[in-house]
Structure formats: structure tokens, C-alpha cells
Design a protein around this nucleic acid. Structure first.
Length: 511
RNA sequence: CGGGGCGUAGCUCAGCCUGGUAGAGCGCUUGCUUUGGGAGCAAGAAGUCGUGAGUUCGAAUCUCGCCGCCCCGACCA
């Protein structure tokens, strides 16, 4: 066994998609289920989702939203109310057509269940809930005094995707969908932008992932939206991933669902609505952004367990003493807080070999590993390993020093991950001017076995929707967003049409 | 829906071309040894070989149908 063998095979540069799947498996976060396209989210993966929920929910509440829950099943006719929306989701809907089964005994003794009781109107398993929430809003809103309506729901949705991938694109996924209704267009737009910013901040400060906030082009817009805002992240194969979206829906859905109110001017009018969401895709994004060739690396703020304590028990007669000392250390640690939450500490008391346990936690990506054995008890020290540093790295520190610095250590790991992800993104973000440069940037050197290549190309753009489609078709590169920042505003010439352009857009290959 | 691949032990797969009724590694259980480390030795548990039919004395192996999954596209969070 060579010394520099990595825990995950293949490595990132050898085969990124396969590496990704191996990390998910090695970290024990999820597995494919017997149901096509649907995954089983295992505790270590679900723990991440719970932290996403907990921490985002605080932000939603802080910005005035409340949670509610709406049905899984949507009457088919509801989806027909908004034409663009209906068309957008038509090809990926699971449809419920029956409401009972009849048990039929077969000659061979087995039982077959035959669907009966056909529904007069089929239901669609929600691919998103604009229509059914819109119907509720229509009932709830009568006066401008009922507005704004600021609702969020944590739910599962189903989209019958052609090619599922764990966390990144599954047929069923977990998400939150915010739905709001407002008196004016301006108010709805500022809500859209507020939540867009909440997502960008959350990704950066909690997931340690920098994003480029921007607006989608018409081609990439949510079906039925007037404008769609996105946060785009770059992961380690330099592709873009849409990590969250916030939509300004204008009055489209209000008109489709009949959300009307009597205004201050005593005129009956349609409300202005928004919707916004992030999903379990965030977990896939975190993996692709932070994991390395030894497995997952959890950002401390999100890690289900931030510190794992590994008792080193070489002699049976000192075993209990060591375990007691580890438990005591854990208890002391749990009285401390990081980012406003008590430290999440686990003592791994399983009767396994130390090396086995150590590697398991490396692969799971727990931010800090702490080893304590008989000698450490005597010398009042602990051996601390940071997951963001080399796997072999281990620092012997005094226990008191460790207790004093532990939150700072977690903070450092968190910062390191953000700094790394930011450096990767910046290194592979290029301002390009010509079609030649553009094509070269996105063309792998080895066409048979493409290496990681490209990144974010900041281009001047003044093309049409068709031009955009053409680029997508020819190079598999799309406009990820029209970024909001001032640094992207500058006069230039569109690299495709030669027309003048006032702003650069972000082109990239994407998930 | 197109193109490729695959369904054999919990997992990864060999065996199939050249039919004779099941194997490896990892994992699991037990014992011994080892122990600041993903260890070693030994024993053991575990599979109606995706499914249905056909050919045959005999099918994991050959033929046909069906089902499912994975990968690469088109579609998408």
C-alpha cells in the first residue's frame, strides 16, 4: 500500500463524475434506492439537510416569513392555468390516476394488486407548488390589508428527470419553496431581491461557497416568471451549478389563480407574487465544492458532527479511563458555542481499530478529529487533526489550549474552505473578448477523455435568444447569469454579434 | 426518446465465447495474535445467477421476449 494512496478512487482529475459518486458513498450520505431516480438520504447526509433547514429557517423568520404546508397532490387542471408554466413542467410530471387497489389471487398463489377506482380528474405530484398555493392565496386575500402574504413551505417535490444523479438531480427531492404575494410590483421585486441576497449570503457564510448573484436570461428563466434571479457557484471541475433561485412572477400567477384584492384606491386588482427555493442540491454542491481525494470535507457550520473524539485504547485496563476522559472532554466542549449553536461533538466508542475509525471520519469529512489516549491523559494533551489539512497532519496540543481555541479552529476551517473555493473560482474566471478565445477556453485538450477545463467566461453579450441557443448547441455552454455587480458593467462589443454591450455576462458549462 | 453498458453472496465483480448444476476480493460473525492505528492468521454464515419462455439428458452459460439499473446526449434545481 503506497503512502500517498487516496481514500477515494478515482481522484478528481481522473474522473470527476465517478469521484463524486464515490465520495457520496464513502461519506455514507446517500444511496440509490430501488425506486428509479429516487435516493435514500442516509443520516450523515440528512444531518446536513437538517442543518440547512434549521439555519435557513432562522433567516426566513428574520425576514418576516412563516411556514405552512400544502398538499402533495395538485389537481391536473391547476397546472393548466398558466400556459408557460404548464409547458415548462409538462414533460416531467408523475400523475396519479387511481385511488384504490384490488387484490387478485393468482393461480400460483401470489397476489397481484390491480389499480381500480379511476379518478375523474387526475392529480399531479407537485413539481412545484405555485398553482396550489396560488389557489389558497386567492381565498386568503381580499384587501390590501391582507398583504403582503409571506409563506414558506419545507416539502418534497417530484420531477421525472431523464438522468438523475444523487443530490444534484433526483426524481424526488427535498426543498423549501417560498411564496409571497404583494400589493405592488416594487414590493414584490424587492422581496425577490431580498431572498436572492439571503441565498447568496447563506451560501457564502454557512456553506463556504462563493456565488455570483445575477439574473437569468429569458431562455433560462423559470416557466411563467417575469424575471428569475440565481446564485451560481463554481465547483471543482469548473462547471457552474445553480444553487438557488428567486423569481419575480409579476401578475402572471395572480391572474392564473385569481389572487385579487381591493386596493387603497378602492379598485379590484391582481396581486404581485414571488417564489424562491433551494433544494437538497445544495448538498451535492457542497460535496463538489469542498470534498477532496480522501472524501468529504464538511464546512464546520453545516457539519452534523463538528468534532469527533477518538479514544485511543491500546490496553484493556486503561480503556474505561480513556473513554471516561473522552466523554468528559465532549461534555466540556458541548458547553461552548460556535456560530450561535452548541458544539456538535461525538465520541466514537466503537470497538474498532483506531485506523479504521480515523479513516471513516476522514471520508465523512468531520472538520476536527481529536485523539486522546492514556499518554495524553497523563500529559493533559490531545492530538488534533484538521480535515482541511493533510490527512496525516496531527498536532499535539494541551487540552486547556485546545478548549480555549476550539471555536477559533472551527472558524479557521470554515474560512479556509471559503478561501479555497473563492481562489478556485477566481483562478478560472476569465474576461474574454473574441469567439476564438471563447471556443479555446471551453475546448478540452484531450477530446477523448476531457480533463477539467474552462470555467466562468465573462463575455460581452448582445445576442438574441436564438444566438444563445446556438452557443449552447455548439459548445454546451450557456449564460449562467447576467451578474448584478458593478464590476461587470463596462462598455464593450458582443463576441458573437459585434453589437455594442454595456455589461459582461457569465458563460459556463453547467450542471 | 437516441447511443453504449450491465443485471451472479451485503458491496465490487470473475465465470458465459468453448453448456455439466457457483467463485474471488472486500464486508459480516467467532477465536487467537496484534494495537497511537485503515494489521495478521484460522474457522464460519451468506446466492431459487433480474424475470418468463424456448433449445437440450442437462442452462448463470445458447435463443427470444419482458422488467430494471447505470453511463453519454436531448430536458431540468
Amino acid at each position: 500500500m503506497s503512502q500517498d494512496k487516496s481514500a477515494i478512487s478515482p481522484r478528481r482529475e481522473e474522473d470527476f463524475p465517478e469521484w463524486y459518486q464515490q465520495v457520496v458513498r464513502a461519506a455514507d450520505m446517500a444511496e440509490n434506492s430501488e425506486v428509479r431516480g429516487c435516493m435514500v438520504i442516509k443520516p450523515w447526509g440528512y444531518g446536513l439537510w437538517e442543518n440547512i433547514q434549521k439555519q435557513l429557517d432562522v433567516k426566513f423568520k428574520e425576514t418576516g416569513h412563516v411556514n405552512a404546508y400544502f398538499p402533495l397532490l395538485i389537481p391536473l387542471s391547476y397546472l393548466e392555468k398558466e400556459a408557460e408554466h404548464a409547458e415548462g413542467f409538462a414533460t416531467e410530471c408523475a400523475v396519479v390516476t387511481h385511488h384504490r387497489l384490488e387484490a387478485q389471487k393468482q393461480p400460483d398463489g401470489t397476489t397481484k394488486m390491480i389499480p381500480t377506482g379511476e379518478l375523474a380528474e387526475p392529480f399531479v405530484i407537485r413539481p412545484t407548488s405555485e398553482t396550489i398555493i396560488g389557489a389558497a392565496f386567492a381565498r386568503w386575500v381580499e384587501s390590501y390589508r391582507d398583504l403582503p402574504l409571506l409563506i414558506n413551505q419545507w416539502a418534497n417535490v417530484m420531477r421525472w428527470e431523464m438522468r438523475p444523479r444523487l443530490f444534484l438531480r433526483t426524481a424526488e427531492f427535498l426543498w423549501q419553496e417560498g411564496h409571497t404575494a404583494h400589493e405592488t410590483a416594487e414590493e414584490a421585486m424587492s422581496e425577490t431581491k431580498l431572498m436572492h441576497k439571503v441565498y447568496a449570503d447563506f451560501l457564502r457564510d454557512h456553506l463556504a461557497i462563493p456565488v455570483i448573484p445575477g439574473e437569468k436570461t429569458e431562455n433560462e428563466r423559470f416557466p411563467g416568471a417575469v424575471s428569475t434571479f440565481t446564485v451560481e457557484a463554481m465547483v471543482q471541475d469548473r462547471k457552474a451549478i445553480q444553487a438557488g433561485t428567486s423569481h419575480f412572477l409579476g401578475q402572471n400567477f395572480a391572474k392564473a389563480s385569481g389572487i385579487q384584492f381591493l386596493g387603497r384606491d378602492n379598485q379590484r386588482q391582481h396581486a404581485w407574487t414571488t417564489s424562491w427555493g433551494v433544494s437538497t442540491r445544495l448538498i451535492g454542491t457542497m460535496i463538489m465544492a469542498h470534498a477532496d481525494d480522501d472524501g468529504m470535507i464538511m464546512p464546520p457550520r453545516m457539519a452534523p458532527t463538528q468534532i469527533v473524539i477518538l479514544p485511543v485504547t491500546p490496553k484493556p485496563d486503561t480503556r474505561q479511563e480513556v473513554i471516561d476522559a473522552c466523554e468528559a472532554l465532549a461534555t466540556t466542549l458541548r458547553t461552548q458555542t460556535y456560530a450561535g449553536e452548541p458544539l456538535r461533538v461525538h465520541v466514537d466508542k466503537r470497538d474498532l481499530q483506531g485506523g479504521t475509525k480515523n479513516w471513516e471520519w476522514i471520508k465523512k469529512g468531520v472538520p476536527l478529529r481529536v485523539e486522546m489516549g492514556p499518554r495524553d491523559i497523563t500529559s493533559r494533551s490531545v492530538a488534533v487533526s484538521r480535515r482541511d489539512a493533510g490527512v496525516k497532519g496531527k498536532e499535539i496540543v494541551g487540552k486547556e489550549d485546545f478548549l480555549r481555541n476550539v471555536t477559533e479552529l472551527l472558524h479557521e476551517v470554515q474560512s479556509t474552505l471559503l478561501a479555497r473555493a473563492t481562489a478556485l473560482r477566481d483562478e478560472h474566471t476569465k474576461k474574454l473578448e473574441t469567439m476564438e478565445e471563447f471556443v479555446a477556453f471551453f475546448t478540452p485538450k484531450n477530446a477523448d477523455k476531457p480533463e477539467a477545463h474552462g470555467g466562468f467566461a465573462l463575455m460581452h453579450w448582445a445576442g438574441s435568444n436564438d444566438d444563445e441557443d446556438q452557443i449552447a448547441k455548439d459548445y454546451k455552454v450557456t449564460i449562467r447569469c447576467i451578474p448584478l455587480g458593478d464590476e461587470y458593467a463596462e462598455e464593450g462589443t458582443c463576441f458573437m454579434t459585434g453589437k455594442p454591450s454595456a455589461r459582461r455576462v457569465v458563460f459556463a458549462k453547467s450542471y
